Simulated assay, not measured.
Amino acid sequence: MGFAEEHSKWVDFHKKRRNGERLDRLERGHGHGEKLFVERVWWPIFGHMDDLHPEYEVADWRGRPYFVDFVWKRGQIKMAIEVKGYGPHVQQMDRTRYRQELNRETYLQIAGYQVVAVPYDDLESAPDLTISLFKSLLAPSLLINTEGLEHQYTRLEKEIMRIAVRWDGLIRPADLVKGLGVHPRTVRKSLTRLCEKGKLRPVPANGSSRVCRYEYIPSIMDSGIW
């Protein structure tokens, strides 16, 4: 399943769990810039939107509700992500609003959030730069619990993932059987386990429910298993 379908499912998932102003804010606030960030930065890094919350409600220092473009929550990690454009609304922002925005960002850090501002213009013209910066920013958080990570995958599973990377992310069971000299049943079991672990995604043939290929789901944690 590609980004458009996964993004739609992700937004619907959060809509079903909201009502009132929280639902209205999600419908109004998750616009072009926010979707661009998910599509051009988050999706290429993770291949999914797990633990990423759009238009997330927090309270500011006055106790008033405030919605952050995205909050990423993973265990004890909390990151607040704001997509910021330089448009008329920024140019015309009065001093009071500007001061409040800075105070909110400071308060978020006091509340335990790491605050990250993403330039909208870079999402359109230089997403690779933003991806690189985010990988460096996220890596320490993701690698905290990598001790013993290599034991989560069998030798065959790791070899299948290596092959998938070399083959531009797509592999066929028949090619694995031929290339690795492994019984088809063993290959199928390993492919199923990798799907369950979130490392592969089955790709049905056109106009059919029959799975003929598998797509590799990248992660910046993968360096810990090679």
Rank of each mutant, 00 (worst) to 15 (best):
E101D: 04
E124P: 00
R97Q: 14
L108P: 04
D122I: 10
P127L: 15
I131S: 03
Q109G: 08
R95G: 01
R95T: 14
V118K: 06
T106M: 08
R97I: 14
Y120M: 11
S132F: 13
A126E: 11
V115W: 04
A126S: 11
Y120P: 00
S132E: 14
P119N: 03
T106E: 07
D121L: 14
Y107V: 02
A117I: 15
R95L: 13
T96F: 14
Q109P: 00
R99Y: 08
Y98R: 09
Y113E: 04
R95K: 08
D122R: 11
V118C: 06
A126N: 09
A111H: 00
A117E: 13
D121I: 15
E124N: 07
A126H: 10
Q109R: 11
I131D: 01
L123M: 06
V116P: 00
V115T: 12
A111L: 04
P127D: 08
T96E: 12
D122M: 15
Y98I: 10
E101K: 01
L102M: 14
A111P: 00
E105L: 08
T106D: 02
D122W: 10
Y98D: 05
L129M: 12
L123A: 06
A111R: 07
L108M: 15
T106W: 03
Y120Q: 10
T106K: 05
R104S: 04
V118H: 03
R95P: 00
V115H: 07
E124Y: 10
P119V: 12
S125C: 08
Y120I: 07
Y98M: 07
P119R: 03
G112L: 01
T106P: 00
L123I: 13
I131G: 02
L108F: 05
L129N: 05
D121W: 11
L102W: 02
A126W: 06
L129K: 12
Y107L: 01
A117F: 12
N103K: 06
Q114H: 08
Q109H: 04
T130M: 09
P127T: 14
E124T: 12
S125V: 15
L108T: 09
P119I: 14
R104Y: 01
Q100S: 01
S125W: 11
L108K: 05
Y113H: 06
V115G: 02
V118M: 12
L102G: 09
R97L: 13
